[in-house]
Design a protein around this nucleic acid. Structure first.
Lengths: 149, 149
DNA sequence: CGGATTTGGTAGCATGTTGCAACCAGATGT
DNA sequence: ACATCTGGTTGCAACATGCTACCAAATCCG
């Protein structure tokens, strides 16, 4: 994306997040990281993305503090990409996108990969937005407060 | 983004969602729609995006069923873009991105726009991922079930 | 009514980014 | 030692992006 206008100075957190993630490939990389991918080759096989693109995205994610390079768990000289705390904090974003996709882009019975609770093997609960007091809120019940200058 | 490989046939809901949204501009358009923007000009002023890009994105979002064209509320001959039910279902995605941005890209006290509960004026609760039984689950406590062929 | 302005776009063009293929160095396997 | 795997980089063509100019219809304003 040719973007002469970066969002890194925007006062909207959504814009900064979008800017930090970079592009959709990056988000799918993060998804794969949640799913257990750790090595360059794993990401590449899973995503089918060109290696130069993957290389650039991984570097950007590391620079952005979403991933970090750690020594390979198997003791080899290679390195692995691991989610940082900041990267793991993207979990609700991935889950939200996943649930939206499940709800709107698959016919009844059409098979798709699913995110399950490891403990009981059941799908996760639908994400819901709540107010500070725990009451569920719909979009119309919210308001964006413009930044206090 | 030059993407010869579309994700529309992926079995991963995240990939299909990403594909359906299209690009980051589209997501910011949806964010603005949640914030009350309805007209072409409103989106353009708010985003500062080139008109041809905005035009293409709006058309794609309408084609994808995220937005729909409705007669203008003020009775004029113009039309307005309104979120469909499918579009409104993106609310958790936007909120998740917003909260991630708030947590990681603003210094303490740095002003930023905020999403508040209209009823009590307080920020929303932090989104959390729960299992079917209501227990909170961390990423490591989940597993992706590969599609049953 | 008539002219100016706003709204909501489209068209053309330069440029940057994507994505493919080829290549390459170091680590690993045998 | 030799082959292969891993993890990249480089060059290049094609395409999408984004800017500016242009345009038609609707609306405003005197």
């Amino acid at each position: 994306m040719v973007r002469r206008t970066s969002f890194e100075d925007s006062d909207c957190p959504v814009a900064r997040s979008v800017d930090a993630i970079g592009d959709w490939w990056s988000l799918l990389i993060v998804r794969d990281a949640f799913d257990g991918s750790r090595r360059f080759g794993e990401f590449q096989r899973s995503l089918g993305v060109a290696k130069n693109i993957l290389s650039a995205r991984l570097r950007a994610l590391v620079a952005g503090g979403v991933l970090e390079l750690v020594p390979a768990a198997d003791g080899s000289a290679y390195q692995e990409y691991a989610l940082t705390a900041k990267g793991r904090a993207l979990f609700p974003v991935i889950v939200a996108l996943r649930q939206w996709g499940e709800s709107h882009f698959f016919d009844d019975g059409e098979p798709h990969s699913e995110l399950l609770d490891r403990r009981d093997g059941r799908p996760l609960a639908e994400l819901r937005v709540h107010a500070a007091d725990g009451r569920p809120v719909a979009p119309e019940e919210t308001v964006v407060a413009k930044v206090p200058r």
